[in-house]
Protein backbone atom coordinates (compact mmCIF):
# COMPACT_ATOMS: atom_id res chain seq x y z
CA UNK A 1 0.00 0.00 0.00
CA UNK A 2 1.34 3.39 -0.96
CA UNK A 3 1.26 6.36 1.34
CA UNK A 4 0.84 8.99 -1.39
CA UNK A 5 -2.64 10.24 -0.53
CA UNK A 6 -4.83 8.35 1.87
CA UNK A 7 -8.21 9.64 2.97
CA UNK A 8 -10.36 7.69 5.38
CA UNK A 9 -13.78 8.71 6.59
CA UNK A 10 -13.31 12.42 5.87
CA UNK A 11 -16.14 14.57 7.15
CA UNK A 12 -16.54 18.31 6.84
CA UNK A 13 -19.20 20.75 7.85
CA UNK A 14 -19.77 24.45 7.57
CA UNK A 15 -22.03 26.40 9.89
CA UNK A 16 -23.52 23.19 11.18
CA UNK A 17 -24.26 21.71 7.75
CA UNK A 18 -22.43 18.53 7.08
CA UNK A 19 -21.19 18.56 3.49
CA UNK A 20 -18.77 15.66 3.43
CA UNK A 21 -20.10 12.60 5.18
CA UNK A 22 -17.26 10.14 5.14
CA UNK A 23 -15.01 10.14 2.09
CA UNK A 24 -12.58 7.32 1.45
CA UNK A 25 -10.02 7.86 -1.26
CA UNK A 26 -6.64 6.50 -2.07
CA UNK A 27 -4.39 7.92 -4.74
CA UNK A 28 -1.09 6.40 -5.80
CA UNK A 29 1.77 8.00 -7.72
CA UNK A 30 1.15 8.32 -11.45
CA UNK A 31 -2.62 7.97 -11.18
CA UNK A 32 -5.35 10.24 -12.47
CA UNK A 33 -8.58 10.19 -10.52
CA UNK A 34 -11.76 11.87 -11.64
CA UNK A 35 -14.34 12.86 -9.08
CA UNK A 36 -17.69 13.51 -10.65
CA UNK A 37 -21.00 14.39 -9.22
CA UNK A 38 -24.08 16.56 -9.50
CA UNK A 39 -24.20 20.11 -8.15
CA UNK A 40 -24.17 20.27 -4.38
CA UNK A 41 -22.64 16.84 -3.91
CA UNK A 42 -19.58 18.24 -2.11
CA UNK A 43 -16.99 18.26 -4.90
CA UNK A 44 -15.66 21.73 -4.28
CA UNK A 45 -15.76 21.22 -0.53
CA UNK A 46 -13.54 18.19 -0.94
CA UNK A 47 -10.94 20.16 -2.89
CA UNK A 48 -11.13 23.09 -0.47
CA UNK A 49 -10.68 20.84 2.53
CA UNK A 50 -7.71 19.07 0.97
CA UNK A 51 -6.10 22.43 0.13
CA UNK A 52 -6.66 23.73 3.65
CA UNK A 53 -9.42 26.30 3.49
CA UNK A 54 -10.21 27.30 7.04
CA UNK A 55 -13.96 27.79 6.75
CA UNK A 56 -14.78 24.15 7.45
CA UNK A 57 -14.87 21.98 10.52
CA UNK A 58 -13.03 18.89 9.46
CA UNK A 59 -12.75 15.43 10.99
CA UNK A 60 -11.33 12.22 9.63
CA UNK A 61 -9.96 8.86 10.65
CA UNK A 62 -6.97 9.56 8.46
CA UNK A 63 -5.80 12.04 5.87
CA UNK A 64 -2.15 11.60 4.98
CA UNK A 65 -0.17 13.02 2.10
CA UNK A 66 3.27 11.53 1.49
CA UNK A 67 3.07 10.05 4.96
CA UNK A 68 2.32 13.34 6.72
CA UNK A 69 -0.85 14.42 8.49
CA UNK A 70 -2.38 16.72 5.92
CA UNK A 71 -5.05 18.26 8.14
CA UNK A 72 -2.49 19.51 10.59
CA UNK A 73 -0.70 21.56 7.97
CA UNK A 74 -1.43 25.17 7.01
CA UNK A 75 -2.36 25.71 3.34
CA UNK A 76 1.13 27.00 2.52
CA UNK A 77 2.75 23.94 4.11
CA UNK A 78 0.57 21.65 2.03
CA UNK A 79 1.63 23.59 -1.05
CA UNK A 80 5.30 23.34 -0.14
CA UNK A 81 4.88 19.60 0.37
CA UNK A 82 3.66 19.35 -3.20
CA UNK A 83 -0.10 19.78 -3.21
CA UNK A 84 -1.64 22.17 -5.71
CA UNK A 85 -5.21 23.33 -6.09
CA UNK A 86 -6.31 24.82 -9.39
CA UNK A 87 -9.22 27.04 -8.39
CA UNK A 88 -12.63 26.87 -9.95
CA UNK A 89 -12.78 30.65 -9.63
CA UNK A 90 -9.21 31.97 -9.68
CA UNK A 91 -8.87 35.14 -7.64
CA UNK A 92 -7.97 38.46 -9.23
CA UNK A 93 -5.27 40.23 -7.27
CA UNK A 94 -4.72 43.74 -8.64
CA UNK A 95 -1.23 45.13 -8.15
CA UNK A 96 0.45 41.77 -7.49
CA UNK A 97 2.51 40.75 -10.48
CA UNK A 98 1.98 37.21 -11.68
CA UNK A 99 5.69 36.71 -12.15
CA UNK A 100 6.84 38.17 -8.84
CA UNK A 101 4.32 36.18 -6.94
CA UNK A 102 5.31 32.96 -8.68
CA UNK A 103 8.93 33.60 -7.94
CA UNK A 104 8.10 34.12 -4.27
CA UNK A 105 6.05 30.91 -4.30
CA UNK A 106 8.82 28.89 -5.92
CA UNK A 107 11.36 30.23 -3.46
CA UNK A 108 9.10 29.47 -0.51
CA UNK A 109 8.97 25.88 -1.71
CA UNK A 110 12.71 25.75 -2.33
CA UNK A 111 13.47 27.08 1.15
CA UNK A 112 11.21 24.40 2.55
CA UNK A 113 13.32 21.84 0.69
CA UNK A 114 16.52 23.41 2.00
CA UNK A 115 17.43 24.92 -1.37
CA UNK A 116 18.60 28.44 -2.16
CA UNK A 117 16.56 30.94 -4.20
CA UNK A 118 16.14 30.12 -7.85
CA UNK A 119 18.47 32.18 -10.02
CA UNK A 120 16.92 34.87 -12.19
CA UNK A 121 18.15 33.07 -15.27
CA UNK A 122 16.76 29.65 -14.35
CA UNK A 123 13.50 31.26 -13.42
CA UNK A 124 13.12 33.03 -16.75
CA UNK A 125 13.99 29.89 -18.67
CA UNK A 126 11.34 28.03 -16.69
CA UNK A 127 8.73 30.73 -17.26
CA UNK A 128 9.31 30.58 -21.00
CA UNK A 129 9.07 26.86 -21.14
CA UNK A 130 5.93 26.56 -19.01
CA UNK A 131 4.19 29.45 -20.73
CA UNK A 132 4.57 27.61 -24.00
CA UNK A 133 3.03 24.55 -22.40
CA UNK A 134 -0.31 26.25 -21.83
CA UNK A 135 0.06 28.75 -24.68
CA UNK A 136 -0.15 31.63 -22.22
CA UNK A 137 0.78 34.95 -23.75
CA UNK A 138 3.84 36.53 -22.24
CA UNK A 139 1.93 39.74 -21.61
CA UNK A 140 -0.38 37.83 -19.29
CA UNK A 141 2.48 36.37 -17.29
CA UNK A 142 3.72 39.88 -16.62
CA UNK A 143 0.38 41.32 -15.59
CA UNK A 144 -1.27 41.43 -12.19
CA UNK A 145 -2.51 38.03 -11.04
CA UNK A 146 -5.63 37.22 -13.09
CA UNK A 147 -6.60 40.87 -13.33
CA UNK A 148 -8.70 41.44 -16.40
CA UNK A 149 -8.06 37.90 -17.65
CA UNK A 150 -10.84 36.15 -19.54
CA UNK A 151 -12.28 32.99 -18.02
CA UNK A 152 -10.11 30.83 -20.26
CA UNK A 153 -6.99 32.85 -19.53
CA UNK A 154 -7.55 32.46 -15.81
CA UNK A 155 -7.79 28.68 -16.12
CA UNK A 156 -4.70 28.57 -18.30
CA UNK A 157 -2.92 30.69 -15.71
CA UNK A 158 -3.84 28.10 -13.08
CA UNK A 159 -2.25 25.37 -15.14
CA UNK A 160 0.75 27.61 -15.83
CA UNK A 161 1.22 28.10 -12.08
CA UNK A 162 0.84 24.37 -11.54
CA UNK A 163 3.51 23.73 -14.15
CA UNK A 164 5.84 26.22 -12.47
CA UNK A 165 5.34 24.77 -9.01
CA UNK A 166 5.70 21.13 -10.14
CA UNK A 167 3.41 19.61 -7.51
CA UNK A 168 3.23 15.92 -6.65
CA UNK A 169 -0.55 16.11 -6.50
CA UNK A 170 -2.61 18.50 -8.60
CA UNK A 171 -6.26 18.98 -7.74
CA UNK A 172 -8.19 20.60 -10.57
CA UNK A 173 -11.46 21.98 -9.29
CA UNK A 174 -13.84 22.23 -12.24
CA UNK A 175 -11.08 23.55 -14.41
CA UNK A 176 -13.22 22.69 -17.43
CA UNK A 177 -16.15 24.87 -16.43
CA UNK A 178 -16.57 27.91 -18.61
CA UNK A 179 -13.99 26.80 -21.16
CA UNK A 180 -14.65 26.59 -24.85
CA UNK A 181 -13.43 23.53 -26.66
CA UNK A 182 -10.13 25.06 -27.79
CA UNK A 183 -9.25 26.30 -24.33
CA UNK A 184 -10.25 22.94 -22.90
CA UNK A 185 -7.88 21.17 -25.27
CA UNK A 186 -5.02 23.51 -24.35
CA UNK A 187 -5.61 23.01 -20.64
CA UNK A 188 -5.92 19.23 -21.01
CA UNK A 189 -2.85 19.10 -23.17
CA UNK A 190 -0.92 21.01 -20.51
CA UNK A 191 -1.97 18.56 -17.83
CA UNK A 192 -1.10 15.57 -20.00
CA UNK A 193 2.40 16.91 -20.52
CA UNK A 194 2.84 17.34 -16.77
CA UNK A 195 1.78 13.77 -16.03
CA UNK A 196 4.52 11.43 -14.90
CA UNK A 197 4.94 8.25 -12.93
CA UNK A 198 5.66 10.31 -9.80
CA UNK A 199 2.82 12.77 -9.75
CA UNK A 200 -0.91 12.38 -9.66
CA UNK A 201 -4.02 14.37 -10.42
CA UNK A 202 -7.50 14.60 -9.04
CA UNK A 203 -9.89 16.08 -11.58
CA UNK A 204 -13.07 17.39 -10.12
CA UNK A 205 -15.71 17.85 -12.75
CA UNK A 206 -19.36 17.89 -13.42
CA UNK A 207 -19.08 16.80 -17.02
CA UNK A 208 -17.44 13.95 -18.78
CA UNK A 209 -16.11 16.09 -21.59
CA UNK A 210 -12.75 16.92 -19.92
CA UNK A 211 -12.17 13.19 -19.57
CA UNK A 212 -12.10 12.83 -23.34
CA UNK A 213 -8.83 14.70 -23.23
CA UNK A 214 -7.37 13.66 -19.88
CA UNK A 215 -8.00 9.97 -19.49
CA UNK A 216 -8.54 8.99 -15.86
CA UNK A 217 -7.43 5.74 -14.28
CA UNK A 218 -10.31 5.88 -11.83
CA UNK A 219 -13.67 7.57 -11.76
CA UNK A 220 -15.55 8.20 -8.52
CA UNK A 221 -19.06 9.47 -8.19
CA UNK A 222 -19.67 11.82 -5.30
CA UNK A 223 -23.23 12.19 -4.14
CA UNK A 224 -24.55 13.76 -0.95
CA UNK A 225 -21.12 13.92 0.63
CA UNK A 226 -20.07 10.36 -0.08
CA UNK A 227 -18.37 8.46 -2.84
CA UNK A 228 -21.19 6.19 -3.93
CA UNK A 229 -19.59 4.47 -6.89
CA UNK A 230 -16.10 3.98 -8.26
CA UNK A 231 -14.94 2.50 -11.49
CA UNK A 232 -12.67 3.03 -14.46
CA UNK A 233 -13.10 5.51 -17.29
CA UNK A 234 -16.11 3.64 -18.64
CA UNK A 235 -18.08 4.82 -15.61
CA UNK A 236 -17.74 8.39 -16.83
CA UNK A 237 -19.13 7.42 -20.21
CA UNK A 238 -22.00 5.60 -18.62
CA UNK A 239 -22.78 8.69 -16.54
CA UNK A 240 -22.70 10.85 -19.62
CA UNK A 241 -25.19 8.58 -21.28
CA UNK A 242 -27.56 7.88 -18.38
CA UNK A 243 -27.15 11.01 -16.24
CA UNK A 244 -26.65 11.23 -12.52
CA UNK A 245 -30.23 10.18 -11.76
CA UNK A 246 -29.29 6.67 -12.62
CA UNK A 247 -26.79 6.50 -9.75
CA UNK A 248 -28.90 8.57 -7.40
CA UNK A 249 -31.81 6.15 -7.86
CA UNK A 250 -29.51 3.22 -7.34
CA UNK A 251 -28.11 4.71 -4.13
CA UNK A 252 -31.42 5.72 -2.72
CA UNK A 253 -32.94 2.35 -3.45
CA UNK A 254 -30.44 0.70 -1.14
Amino acid sequence: MSDFLRVKNLRASIEGNQILKGIDLEVNPGEVHAIMGPNGSGKSTLSSVLAGREDYEVEADEVTFLGKELLEMAPEERAREGLFLAFQYPVEIPGVSNINFLKAAINAKRHHQGLADITAKDFMVMVKEKQALVELKQSLANRSVNEGFSGGEKKRNEIFQMAMLEPRLGILDETDSGLDIDALKIVANGVNKLKSKDNSFILITHYQRLLNYIVPDFVHVLYNGKIVKSGDKSLALELEEKGYDWIINEVEAV
Binding site: A51, G52, R53, E54, A74, P75, E76, R78, A79, R80, F84, L85, F87, P90, V91, I93, P94, G95, V96, N100, F101, L102, A104, A105, I106, A108, K109, H112, S144, V145, Q161, L165
Partner: peptide, 24 residues
Protein backbone atom coordinates in the same frame (compact mmCIF):
# COMPACT_ATOMS: atom_id res chain seq x y z
CA UNK B 1 -9.91 34.87 -0.70
CA UNK B 2 -6.71 36.41 -2.07
CA UNK B 3 -4.84 35.40 1.09
CA UNK B 4 -5.98 31.79 0.72
CA UNK B 5 -5.09 31.79 -2.96
CA UNK B 6 -1.55 32.98 -2.27
CA UNK B 7 -1.17 30.52 0.59
CA UNK B 8 -2.17 27.61 -1.61
CA UNK B 9 0.80 28.59 -3.78
CA UNK B 10 3.13 28.17 -0.82
CA UNK B 11 3.40 31.70 0.52
CA UNK B 12 3.23 32.03 4.28
CA UNK B 13 0.62 34.29 5.82
CA UNK B 14 3.03 37.17 6.37
CA UNK B 15 4.49 36.89 2.87
CA UNK B 16 1.00 36.81 1.37
CA UNK B 17 -0.09 39.79 3.46
CA UNK B 18 3.03 41.64 2.42
CA UNK B 19 2.29 41.12 -1.27
CA UNK B 20 -1.28 42.31 -0.84
CA UNK B 21 -0.30 45.35 1.19
CA UNK B 22 2.42 46.21 -1.30
CA UNK B 23 -0.14 46.04 -4.06
CA UNK B 24 -2.52 48.16 -2.01
Amino acid sequence: EAMFYLQTRGLGKAAAAKLLVQAF
